[in-house]
């Protein structure tokens, strides 16, 4: 056996490797880390943690790159929103954080050697994913946040709106689960 293979085998059998990189962490560990990092996010950027609002900015930047203008759109009409757009992608903390989430997720899968490009099983999956994505994106914008910005950060900042969001999301999840069982079983 080559030394490279031997080393790899040694790593994959190592208890620390299995515990920290191979096996999924317990839910409680994840919850505690998320809480700590959202405090760090609020303290360092001055804004609570959000994910989907960033995508609206990405959309605006792409639209502007093709010569469009969102200056008159109600959603981007505030001075704050305009300033964020003018400062650009490179100066936008939320954009870097989202890129970090994507790269971090990729890295964790690579470390666990679980990367797999999955097949699309049916046309139904494409339709459901596109429809679901559109509804989530649209809903998150008119609710001023997704399950991170409105729910997680809302509750973390002791805001009642986070709990209202939670109740509505629970109802939506029940309906969604029924639809899932109906169309995907």
């Amino acid at each position: 056996m080559s030394t490279f293979k031997e080393t790899m085998l040694k790593i994959s059998n190592n208890d620390m490797y299995k515990k920290w990189l191979k096996t999924a962490w317990p839910y409680v560990t994840g919850a505690v880390l998320l809480s700590l990092f959202q405090i760090a996010t609020l303290a360092s950027t001055g804004n609570p943690w959000g994910v989907s609002g960033v995508f609206a900015n990405w959309g605006a930047w792409i639209y502007e790159a093709f010569g469009g203008s969102v200056a008159k759109w109600y959603y981007f009409s505030s001075d704050g929103a305009q300033a964020t757009l003018e400062n650009g992608f490179l100066n936008h903390a939320g954009s870097w954080r989202n890129i970090g989430i994507i790269l971090g997720a990729l890295l964790s899968v690579l470390f666990a050697s679980q990367l797999k490009i999955k097949k699309i099983k049916s046309k139904k999956q494409i339709i459901a994913a596109s429809l679901g994505g559109l509804l989530m994106g649209y809903g998150a914008r008119i609710a001023f946040g997704c399950n991170i910005g409105a729910l997680f950060s809302g509750i973390a900042s002791l805001s009642l709106s986070g709990w209202v969001f939670a109740i509505a999301m629970f109802g939506g999840a029940v309906v969604g689960s029924k639809l899932l069982v109906k169309f995907f079983m």
Binding site: K118, K119, I120, K121, Q125, L180, V181, F184, M185
Partner: peptide, 16 residues
């Protein structure tokens, strides 16, 4: 259940 996302594999297994 390859290519199926949660919770489809779980529900399929429960039904089976």
């Amino acid at each position: 259940c390859l290519g199926e996302a949660c919770p489809v594999p779980l529900v399929k297994a429960q039904n089976k």
